[in-house]
């Protein structure tokens, strides 16, 4: 009986590990033809003054606010002068990783003079990139 008890305890101890594994593999699926793109500015654009609207485009998917789980939707994130390091984790929230969890499709940016890169990534309800990630090309701009 003690042996049965030990086996039962062992099985129950393993249960959370199995459930955690399920969560990790569960990134939201993106349609094959989904495409994110930065409508403006385009590669090589020179911006005078540093303030501009970034227009974000999304093809074959929809926008939903953060926290809303709806098939084939996500919300925009803008990577400024940085890359997406880990697609399995929520996108961090800081000056280089802007979140648009209210469902915005355009953003007013102010950047200092110099060369900058912009890239869009779509995140699901929990700010985690889809599987596969729906990302735009990286756009390089110059601010004067």
């Amino acid at each position: 009986m003690l042996r049965t008890a030990v086996i039962a305890v062992g099985a129950l101890l393993l249960l959370p590990l199995l459930l955690a594994g399920q969560g990790m593999a569960d990134r939201a699926k993106a349609p094959d033809d989904a495409r994110a793109y930065i409508l403006w500015p385009s590669n090589g654009t020179v911006i005078t003054g540093g303030k501009f609207w970034v227009r974000m485009g999304l093809q074959n998917m929809g926008i939903a606010p953060a926290g809303v789980s709806h098939a084939d939707t996500g919300h925009h994130h803008l990577l400024i002068d940085t890359d997406l390091t880990n697609p399995d984790e929520p996108i961090p929230n800081d000056k280089q990783h802007l979140h648009f969890g209210a469902g915005q499709t355009e953003a007013r940016l102010e950047l200092p003079p110099g060369t900058h890169t912009l890239q869009m990534v779509l995140g699901d309800a929990d700010h985690i990139p889809h599987n596969p990630p729906v990302m735009s090309e990286k756009v390089t701009i110059t601010v004067r």
Binding site: W53, R55, G62, I63, A64, P65, V68, H70, T73, F100, A102, G103, Q104, T105, E106
Partner: peptide, 15 residues
């Protein structure tokens, strides 16, 4: 579709 200072959400979502 261009939209500034407002967000997009699917139909049925209240926010």
């Amino acid at each position: 579709f261009g939209l500034r200072n407002f967000g997009v959400a699917p139909a049925g979502v209240r926010k």
